[in-house]
């Protein structure tokens, strides 16, 4: 093919990537549904906290508020999760990254297309949870502000992008160290508390709440969740979106820098 050959329009290129990505996701649906089954922590927390709240509300949270919160957390987690840290870490270490390095599409974009292609499958799983959330929460426990409803998909997309870029930054550490996945385990351990996954952030001690506001985790989960449940006003959502964007950019810049340096020392063993 000549170098001067016309490029395909980005739209048709993206559609082709997403179509093949969806075919792959469908082929690996077994793995996907096993992952779904293992993502059950919010349901455990739901059972625990509704029991705690049975004797009286904890802060603003009664039993049904906790049920709505943790069903919402499960929903956000399903819609914004990614596997790229495991996939890229493995590809760097076993040399199979070679295939993506040889193609004229940056692996960051290729992995993103693979991830986004899973959206239809994720929606299949998310739909019954959204229905359960609607039934449990009722209109009174969801935001009434149409602007917040309009901002919700933006916060979800931003949460996905933040998780994805953080994963890229950690996965690229595999160029330098054997323990990139241990770093991700640390990220997850901190995120359990500081994102609102185990307990709503507003129930944390004041000092931890203040710390959480400056760290990235709350923008991966609590921001869309609080927007959905009407726990924050428009101004807070917009401030959250700005913080989410800043953290996403920070991780993307870090991932790019690590990628560039990492490739220079990459030994492509086995590949």
């Amino acid at each position: 093919m000549s170098e001067a050959a016309a490029r395909l329009p980005w739209g048709s290129k993206a559609l082709a990537l997403l179509r093949v990505g969806l075919s792959s996701a469908v082929a690996y649906r077994g793995e996907f549904f096993v992952w779904i089954l293992t993502t059950n922590m919010p349901l455990v927390m739901l059972a625990l906290w509704t029991r705690v709240a049975a004797d009286g509300p904890v802060g603003r949270f009664g039993a049904r508020d906790f049920a709505a919160y943790f069903l919402g957390a499960l929903l956000v987690r399903f819609l914004t999760g990614s596997w790229v840290v495991w996939e890229m870490n493995f590809a760097i270490r076993d040399g199979s990254l070679r295939t993506r390095l040889l193609r004229p599409l940056h692996p960051f974009l290729h992995y993103a297309a693979d991830n986004l292609a899973q959206i239809p499958l994720r929606l299949v799983v998310a739909a019954p949870i959204a229905l359960a959330l609607g039934l449990v929460a009722g209109p009174s426990r969801l935001t009434h502000d149409p602007v917040q409803w309009a901002l919700l998909p933006v916060t979800l997309a931003g949460a996905w992008a933040l998780v994805y870029c953080a994963m890229l930054a950690v996965a690229t550490l595999a160029f330098f160290a054997e323990s990139a996945l241990s770093v991700w385990e640390l990220w997850m351990a901190l995120g359990y508390v500081l994102s609102g996954y185990l307990v709503p952030i507003e129930l944390l001690p004041a000092g931890m709440r203040a710390v959480a506001a400056w760290l990235p985790w709350r923008y991966t989960l609590a921001l869309p969740l609080d927007t959905l449940l009407g726990h924050v006003d428009r101004a807070a959502t917009l401030r959250g979106l700005a913080a989410q964007l800043a953290w996403t950019a920070t991780f993307l810049i870090a991932a790019r820098a690590l990628w560039t340096r990492g490739l220079k020392r990459y030994e492509s063993f086995g590949g």
């Binding site: 093919m1 050959a5 016309a6 490029r7 395909l8 048709s12 290129k13 082709a16 990537l17 179509r19 093949v20 075919s23 792959s24 193609r103 004229p104 599409l105 290729h110």
Partner: peptide, 13 residues
């Protein structure tokens, strides 16, 4: 499917 993927990635009309 791989051929279609490569067509998109390499911009083959």
């Amino acid at each position: 499917e791989t051929f279609a993927l490569n067509r998109a990635i390499y911009d083959v009309p």
